[in-house]
């Protein structure tokens, strides 16, 4: 049935989106802003930079790039599984 297929595709798609957004939030708002002071004091330094500071100015951006690569990979695999892929 097409519509059940559709539902389960959307469900898997949203699961991927939620997971990635969780990482996105932790890397930027979490490490870079909300828990920065604690991380600066307690987490291991990156080179000579306090962890929270480094996450805010460099780490989060690197995470974002990785997130998009993972997203593209997972979604393309999902498309293939459901036969929605257009790369024949």
């Amino acid at each position: 049935m097409k519509s059940t297929d559709h539902r389960s595709y959307l469900k898997s798609c949203l699961r991927i989106v939620y997971c990635l957004l969780a990482v996105w939030f932790t890397a930027s708002f979490g490490c870079g802003i909300l828990f920065r002071d604690w991380l600066d004091a307690n987490a291991p330094q990156i080179g000579n930079a306090p962890f929270g500071f480094w996450m805010a100015q460099q780490g989060s951006i690197i995470c974002f790039v990785i997130l998009l690569v993972v997203y593209a990979f997972l979604m393309n695999r999902l498309d293939e599984k459901y036969g929605y892929s257009e790369n024949k």
Binding site: L20, Q57, I61, F64, L67, Y71
Partner: peptide, 29 residues
């Protein structure tokens, strides 16, 4: 801005790049 305000400038660094993640996984496709 980074030179003047140091850590505080991170809001622009994260804000503009992080928004791109939202754009890509929530909207554009």
């Amino acid at each position: 801005t980074v030179a003047i305000s140091g850590y505080d400038a991170s809001r622009f660094l994260m804000g503009w790049t992080g928004g791109f993640v939202l754009l890509t996984i929530l909207m554009v496709p």
